[in-house]
Structures are given as C-alpha cells and as structure tokens.
Amino acid sequence: MGCLCSKNTKWTPGYEEPTILAAETPFTVSEVEALYELFKKLSSSIIDDGLIHKEELQLALFKNKNNRNLFADRIFDLFDVKRNGVIEFGEFVRSLSVFHPNAPVADKIAFAFRLYDLRNTGFIEREELKEMVLALLHESDLILSDDDVEMIVDKSFKEADTTGDGRIDPEEWKEFVSKNPSLIKNMTLPYLKDITLAFPSFVVSSEVED
C-alpha cells in the first residue's frame, strides 16, 4: 500500500524510521507512526521545525508556555538525550516507551530515580528532595509550613535511606518503590496502548505491516 502521508516526513531533522523504533521499544510500527502525528502537533505548536522545544513541552503540559516548572524541566532534560536543547522524534519515542504499560518496571524505576536525582550525582539527596517538595508547593494550592516540609522530607528519607548515609542510592530506591508501588504510578500512561485510536488517520496511511 502506498503512503498517503507527506514525503516531507523523511527530511524532518531527527526523524527515525518507525520500524527501527518499534524494534527497540514496546510500540508497534503503527503506534510509532501514530506517535509521529502527536510529535508533529507538539513540535509545531510554537516553532514549526519538527523538534520539540522546552516551551512547546511546557505549553502541552500546562497550556501556557511561560509556566516554567522544575518537573517539566526534568522531563525535558531526560527526553533530550543528546543534550542539544530540543527533543527529536527518536528521543521522544524512546523516552515515552518507558511510560508504556508493557515497559519493564525496572526501566520505570530507573527513569523515576533520574527524575529525582536533580544534580545527576547518582544519588537522591536530602536537599534535592526538599527543593522538589518546595517546587510542588509553588505550583499547587497546597500550603505547608517549613517545619512540615522538613518533617515530610525527614520521614521520607528515614524510610528510603536504609543505610543511613544521608542519600538514596539506586538500590535503596528500587527497594523503596517495591514497597510503595504507587510512587511510579505516573510512570505508566494507559493512553500509549490506545495511541492508534487517538490518531487513527495515520494508521490508514501506514507503509509497513505490524
């Protein structure tokens, strides 16, 4: 079957073949193609250059491109694997694949660890956790006293930092999540199983059989 989609696809910077991306991720070829529809929408919302800029991610998450947020910044930084300030299609698909319901739990645990490891030291440190709690308070209506914040951070650290060395290492994090699986609930997006339903038009034009 011929492709009804634009031939311009092949010249989008960072575009990678859906067959290759499907082979490396839990997505089928049709799902990768449907994700390309989503990617095109996100990557053209402010600057139509086929790349997702930080403001475009913020616009999609908050409906407001000026609403800077520590956590959205972390997501952007982790998706921007090449660290060139933009998210390319391949980076988008590979990063989103961790959020697929069928992705290995170990990958979700590792990705969440990296989210919390703000300074990329290989550990989650107390100051990082406090900074994130304060950022959450800033973005929400929740009001907590500084004593309450200290108490929450202390309690969380006491539970997770089993060796008591003042930082949470990947092994401690893994154990902590296994006891508290709700902590990685946001690492699974049920939408990803229905992505071809969300963008059905592209499936008709698919070049490759799954």
Partner: peptide
C-alpha cells in the same frame, strides 16, 4: 489524606509537570 502524613515522593509524583497524560489531550 493529610499531606504531612504523606511521603515526599508521593506528593511530588502528583505534580502537573510530571503528568504526561496532558500531552495526549486534544
């Protein structure tokens, strides 16, 4: 739930910035 009794990670995981389902909203 009383936020003070919650785990910091649980609180943080509710951030809108980490809620990628928003990407799929039309």
């Amino acid at each position: 739930a009383n936020p003070v009794s919650m785990n910091a990670f649980e609180l943080i995981s509710k951030s809108q910035g980490l809620n990628l389902s928003s990407l799929f909203e039309k």
